[in-house]
Amino acid sequence: WKEDLTQKAAEAFLRQQRSTPNLRKLVYGTGTHQFGNLSQSVEDEDQESEDADDELGGLFRVSRPDTASKQKANALDCSKFLVEKPQDWDLEEVMNSIRDCFVTGKWED
């Protein structure tokens, strides 16, 4: 199993590289649909006309859930964050990964 370690580390690194800049995209999506980028000062004209469609009498905004969130609406709504891949906490190195989270671990300075 030791041979796999470097490969695993490389994979983990790549995964992290990929996930880091995408977190915002993952949460809010890439498109400027609905309320779009609040900071965006210049909007496309197309975008504006789309927005106008969504507004009723310039007062109310019609929010249309996208298909992805419609599908999720039928999933179990539970705030618990289940552990998908439990680590083997009997292994020394896994235990070491959180060693300094405790007062018994190493302190800065």
Binding site: S19, L23, R24, V27, S97, I98, R99, D100, C101, K106
Partner: peptide, 12 residues
């Protein structure tokens, strides 16, 4: 949303 990689080694 900013991702923070831990500088210290053993903090999860």
């Amino acid at each position: 949303i900013e991702t923070k990689t831990t500088e210290e080694e053993h903090t999860g």
